[in-house]
Structures are given as structure tokens and as C-alpha cells.
Design a protein around this nucleic acid. Sequence first.
DNA 1: GCCTTTTATCTTGACGTCAAGGTATTTCAA
DNA 2: TTGAAATACCTTGACGTCAAGATAAAAGGC
Lengths: 164, 164
Amino acid sequence: MDHVDRILAQWQAERPDLQLRPMGLLGRIKRLGAHLGQGMERVFAAHGLNAASFDVLATLRRSGAPYALTPSQLMDWTMVTSGTMTNRLDRLEAKGLIRRVRSDRDARSVTVQLTDEGFALIDACVTEHVANQHRLADALSETEQAELDRLLSKWLAGFEPPED
Amino acid sequence: MDHVDRILAQWQAERPDLQLRPMGLLGRIKRLGAHLGQGMERVFAAHGLNAASFDVLATLRRSGAPYALTPSQLMDWTMVTSGTMTNRLDRLEAKGLIRRVRSDRDARSVTVQLTDEGFALIDACVTEHVANQHRLADALSETEQAELDRLLSKWLAGFEPPED
DNA sequence: GCCTTTTATCTTGACGTCAAGGTATTTCAA
DNA sequence: TTGAAATACCTTGACGTCAAGATAAAAGGC
């Protein structure tokens, strides 16, 4: 009898006409996502970051040398709007973690590049982040994690058709 | 090869020292949660609500007659801070969906009650919401949904120790 | 060469959230 | 009885987000 079960029991009593089966599943995904998010934010915060700024720096870092992408590419990877990305980049630039370089070939275009400070910070942060993810997933065995990943991949494929 | 796989492949190339196994799992939970959240928001929006306002009205509705709880009880159920709840209640009150009643017994306390309009709205909305949840979960068979729910419950139990 | 359309990014305004703190009230131990 | 602590709710200020639209530049049809 967890939090989600209590919610389902209330609905069952008040609206016995409803077919509640998927509600528990969706509720658990949402709550688990919230707990995992909080668990990850702690590591980000220890490095002066949050999920938003980590997301940008990590995307640049894993893109490989020269650790530079355009705002549009970053928007594609992180799935946020242009206004959100402008705001994120403004803050990261103010902290000296990225730098905006105007393109020579296209005056509309900007390249966002990790500074040395940004590179060092994200490299240290992601190392801790990965270790933290291991801790967060430890409640399940490797077999269970693999089975869960299989089911989530199948579900996710309906929203994000795989390519290649 | 989905979006998460592409991220993992980039990390693998750039940081082969990292043990990336749990990263895919956590990434898929996050992305799936985002897609499901968007899918649910559409139904809320069709009734002039969003996830936040739906959450409050649904909590009041499923609490049973007289469909009234204090802000503190609502905070416990919805897991938001007091400032957030005040803001939510202000907006719902302005729309005439809830009403605040000062307590006779404790002058600090307030009872938040569904109005007739609020009751009618949330009852209609939750009916559609449940049908929508079925659609969103349709990508998995009933067996798969049950297995997924089992694994998520186990994982979630580490964050929210079950009671009773 | 021009004019429309598309592309790339930034700006604005509204909203939801939280942390920290404020105010009023109640509780409880001395 | 009274004064400190706890409780219940609200206020404030900062932040992250989005939708809509602004600006500027490039591309393409004629």
C-alpha cells in the first residue's frame, strides 16, 4: 500500500465506474521520475549546476571535440524551445562555462563552445553523475534493470520512432 | 537506435571509462514521463485545466463528500510547497472552481471545497483522463503493463516506504 | 536583381515552482 | 498563567519554462 495505491483506492470508492488499471502505472512513472530527478539534482547542485545547465554542458561535452554546437542543435538534443535555450546559454555564458562565437559563413548563426572551465566542470560532474545513477538504480538487480529497460524502450518507441 | 541510444553512443565514444548501464534506464524513464505528461496535458487543456489545477481538483474529488480538504492536506497529497498551493488555490478560486472557508474552530485554518462547477468539471475531466490513460498505455500488453508496474513499484518503494 | 519564404536566434510576457521568510493563532510545559 | 515553540497559511523574489512574436540574414523562384 504505497502512495499510488492509496490514490487508486480513493478513486475506486468514489468512481467505481472507472477502469483504473493504467492510472497506477502512469502514476508510478511520474513519481519515480520525480524522485530520480531530485536524486540527480543533488549532484548537479554540488557543482553549481542544475538539470538544465547540466543538460547543455553534457550535450556539448559528449558531442566530442571541438565541443561546439549551434543553439539549434542544442535545442534538438535537449528538446526545449528557443527561448529556453537562449536563457540557458545566457546564464552559462555569464558563468564563463560556454562562449558564443558568431559564424563567419552565416551571420544569423552562432556556435556555442565549451570553455576550458566548462569542460573541466562537466567532465568532473558527469563522472559523479554516472556513479550517482548507479546508486539510484541499485534497488533493482541487473536483470530487473534490463527487463525494465526493455519494457520502457518498447513503450517509448511509440512516442519516438527509432531511426537507423 | 532511439534518442537515448544515440546519447549513450556519444558518451561511449567520448568517455569509455564510464559505466553507462543505468544511464539509459534513467534517460528512458525521464523521456517517457515527459511524453506521457504531454499526452495527459492535452485532456486537461480541453477542460481549461493544466496538470497543477487538475491535481488539486482531483484530490478534492476523490477525497469523497463533502469534497473539502485543508491546504495542508492538499500539500501532503500533491507534494508541493505551501507557496505553490496558495498560488494554485488563488487561481482555482478566481475561476470559481473551489471556495475557501475559514474554520470556526481554528482561526489559522482554511477549508478548501469544490464548488458545484468544480465538481462537474473535474468529474467530466477525470472520465476523459482515464480513457486517455488507457490510450497512452496501449503500446504495451496487459501482461507487460503488469510486469512494468511490478518493477516500478519495487523501485519506488526505496523512495517511498509503503505503509499499512 | 527583386520579393517572398525560410532559417537562426533572441525578446517579451505569462505562468508554475520553490526557498525563505512573514503573520496570526494555538499548544504546551514550567 | 504565560511565554516559547509549533502550526497554518500567505507573501516575496528568483528561476526555468513556454508560446508568440520580433529581428536579421539567407535561399529560391521569377
